[in-house]
Design a protein around this nucleic acid. Sequence first.
DNA 1: AACCAGGCTCTCC
DNA 2: GGAGAGCATGGT
Length: 278
Amino acid sequence: MELIIEKTPTFDLRQTLDSGQVFRYKEIEKDKWLLYAWGERAFIEEKNGAYYFDCTDAAYFQNYLDFDTKYDIIQMKTQDKGLISSAIEFGKGIHLLKQNPFETIFSFLISQNNNIPRIKSIIERVCDALGEDKGGYHAFPTVDAISCAGQEFFHSVGAGYRAEYLVKTAKTLLETDMSGWDTLKTDDLRGELIKLHGVGRKVADCILLFGYARYDVFPVDTWILKIFSNEYPKVDANKLSGLLVKKYGNYSGFVQQWLYYFGREEKKYGQKPSVIIR
DNA sequence: AACCAGGCTCTCC
DNA sequence: GGAGAGCATGGT
C-alpha cells in the first residue's frame, strides 16, 4: 500500500524518528528509512518535499503519524522567547507518534538506564527472536511470547538486569484486565502502570505519552534533569516532573519532547542548552 | 579507560 | 518519606 505525506514546517520525519520516542527504525541510506511499528512495516523515501510510504497498512501509518494534533497552535502557545522557543525552532517538525501500548511498555522497560543505540539493538534482537514472522520481518512480540521466553533469553540479548522486569511484567499483564485503562484519568492510569515491576514514574510517563497519547505528562530523564538543573537545583526527577506538568498542563508532553530533542542533538555540536535564571 | 545512558528496586534510616 | 547502593551492558 502507498501513502504520501507532505513535508511541512511542523512535520519532519527525521526529527520525529530521532527524538527518542521510537526504536524500531533505521535510515538505510540517505533519505530512506525502514520503520516497524507493532506488526506493521514501512519503507519510506523522502523526495521532492514529501515522504513516500510503501507500507503494509496505509491507514495504520496515517494514524500513527498523528496529523490530528494542531502542532502549529501548540508551538505558538508555548513560546517563551527563551529556551523553549529555541527548542521549538530546532525541532518544530517533531510529531508525537501514536504507538502500541504494549510495545511502549516493553520498549521503555528496556530503555531505563540505557542508551538509545543499545536500546535499539536489544529490541531488534527481541523482535527477531520472539515476534511473529511476517515474511521478511518480524512483528513486535506478543505479551504471551515475552512471558514464555524466560529471563535467560533476555539476558542473552543484552537486556541485563531488566530481564526480570520484562518477564514479570508480561506475566502480570496476562492476568490484568486492561479494558478500562483507556478511559482512566492520566494520574490513575499512571498508578496502574507503576504497579508493573520495573515501571517507575519516568517509564510510566513515556508509556502514557507515546502509547496512550496522554499529553499532561512530562517524562524527566537525565537529559531533562540536566537542562533544568540551573532553574531547579537539587530537585529529584519525580518532583521536577510534577512541577513541569503543573506549569505546562496539556502541552507538557510536547514541550518535553522538544526540549529532549534539543538537548540531545545540541550536545553533538558541543553546546549546552539550559534554563537561564534572571 | 572511566563515565554515562529516555531509572528502578530494595534497604536502611 | 527520603537518601544511597546496586544493578548489566555496551556506547562514547
